[in-house]
Design a protein around this nucleic acid. Structure first.
Lengths: 147, 147
DNA sequence: CTCTATGGTCAAGCTGCTTGACCATGTTGT
DNA sequence: ACAACATGGTCAAGCAGCTTGACCATAGAG
């Protein structure tokens, strides 16, 4: 691969990620929820038993302060709630509310819909390959734009 | 592909894009240039004969005002200059300076280096396939984070 | 030779993040 | 037991990078 193509690959990657993220967010909004794209990524972390603010920040690649602000927002919209953490009185356990779980499902549906559009272009096999390649490439990259 | 995997695909895509973008930027900085990741994407547009501010904005997926601010920054750092546009007295042609071309080469080298790391994991063939898949998927997605 | 569209800039404002300070609680070492 | 330090969380202030809105100069169409 030539040097000039490397930058093009980066651009294509960014374009694809941006396209997918936008589609998902549009789909979630169309289903009657209000939210930013980062909600979805927060939800995936919270879905399994909740998380602390700090853990959420690590998952999203932002400071705990930023994560705390996001949680404020999610609480205000009724998607999550802060519970006392069992076993650590300093911490709070952030968990999804019923409405939060509904929104999570909406995000998953929207994501599936967006990916289906890609499957129409690439075919199931290529799409599976794409997913496999991506997970091998960046197993632990930050789930956020570095722009 | 199941619904839950669709969100995972999106996350993997974002992670890969973020990882690559960060590596490129680090590489550019390590070569003695100061810049943000978006510089590289601006450079690729300017590299072939220059562009107007408005065109640059379209390419980056931002308003012309934001593009103009970016150009201000690039001018300040000596990477580009604003020339009168031949054939349209309203417009200005933004072109790379010699220093700008050096920085562009640095970005390309850094990108190639980052992609080489991926080639070590995936192999050249899979990497080419990845590139092909991505360009088919999001031919005209915005080169910017939708977050 | 108006009338409207387009390229560009200036100015103000906002959103989402950061850094720094601080408090409460947990953990470790002596 | 308790001092010393580490960690989870919040509050506050600041800032980068974007947006919208207004405006001017020039272009192009009728």
């Amino acid at each position: 691969m030539h040097t000039s193509e490397a930058l093009a690959l980066s651009a294509a990657l960014l374009a694809a990620a941006g396209d997918l993220t936008r589609r998902i967010n549009d789909g979630v909004v169309a289903r009657g929820f209000e939210g930013r794209p980062s909600y979805g990524f927060a939800f995936t972390r919270l879905a399994r038993g909740g998380a602390t603010v700090t853990e959420l920040g690590v998952h999203l690649g932002v400071t705990k302060q930023a994560a705390s602000q996001l949680v404020d927002e999610l609480v205000r919209k009724g998607y999550v709630e802060r519970l006392p953490h069992p076993g650590d009185a300093r911490a709070r356990l952030i968990v999804l509310t019923e409405r939060g779980r509904e929104c999570t499902r909406a995000a998953e549906e929207a994501a599936a819909e967006a990916v289906r559009a890609w499957a129409d272009v690439l075919g199931e096999e290529q799409l599976g390959a794409l997913r496999a390649q991506l997970t091998r490439i960046a197993p632990s990259g930050p789930i956020r734009p570095v722009w």
